[in-house]
Design a binder for these strands. Sequence first.
DNA 1: GTCTATAGTTCGATAGAC
DNA 2: GTCTATCGAACTATAGAC
Lengths: 194, 194
Amino acid sequence: MATPRRMGTETSETRVRLLDVTERIMIDDGYAAVSSRRIAKDAGVTPALVHYYFGTLDDLFLALLRRRAEQQLARQQRKLSAERPLRSLWEASKDRDGARLLTELMALANHRKVIQTELAEYAERFRAIQLKALEDHVADLGVDVPPVVLLVLIAGMSRSLVLEASLGMTTGIAETYEVIERYLDQLEAAPPAG
Amino acid sequence: MATPRRMGTETSETRVRLLDVTERIMIDDGYAAVSSRRIAKDAGVTPALVHYYFGTLDDLFLALLRRRAEQQLARQQRKLSAERPLRSLWEASKDRDGARLLTELMALANHRKVIQTELAEYAERFRAIQLKALEDHVADLGVDVPPVVLLVLIAGMSRSLVLEASLGMTTGIAETYEVIERYLDQLEAAPPAG
DNA sequence: GTCTATAGTTCGATAGAC
DNA sequence: GTCTATCGAACTATAGAC
């Protein structure tokens, strides 16, 4: 029986830094640019330390996914209970870096089963939480589609538009934003007129 | 002045095969799994041949993108002039392999400028063609949103739903498909009742 | 058109010193 | 907790033979 590999603690500052650096690499240069050497270089440590904290690169990707997801879950919980959950749901996906990171994770998930499973699981948790918030809220909005459909539509279009804009597309994007946001304002209380 | 590198012709059977193999690798294992060695191995040739035909890997990715895009443009031209352009637009993104390939290309585009430029250009060409087909058609459908918005919505949701399903998500997907398809049937002639 | 051979990089992961 | 050193493997790209 081999001696179990040593590994750093969850709360280590260095560990946090390695995750931060990895996120930045993925956003800037894609998941394929992630390597223990590159991470080490950007973080100012040695490659061996990456393996000390995470074992394999897959474990590192998993840790990154979990941290990000938990952050977002917490943030979402707060915002969804506000007075305009549809709108906050809509805004949630607007962050460009977040959208790129998600794209990279989805591309990763396409061929790394552990990532796919974990990512799908978190996505479903998000959806369940959002659905609950909407169900409590949407009944009296007079919408003709089920809350879950409204949810899938808003989340899907939000992501889609950010990706198209991030790719450099322009046709129809501003117009679609306007139509959707007008619709949301109509459903939920419009902001106070200036 | 150096002797220009030799390069294979566009119509070579081997070239076509190399592109086919590369597509398959990207779909199955992601763009990061694409290497001249892997391609050569899967195609039953030597790595040097990949460089003979494409020069660099970026050129290979570009060639792949162009071939795929031109194929889809031709196919789309045919289908969009049919009697139910909205529906055919909706169906166009349903192919799972196509969606995965597009995801990989978008992830690639996030950090390879040549890919991004070319991909965005093709995406805009697609949109322009689709828009023209819709404008000729949608006027008498009695829709309350501009054709271009309808286009962005349908294309976006089609892609989004395929990706979510491909990831393994389930909540709300079937319901959303139903709502959208019902809506499309209502806009365009519903299929003949059985 | 296809190959062999090779130069030069970069990578994952580990053992073990400090 | 962090490092040095290292093995073994994979990679891009090219030169040049056939």
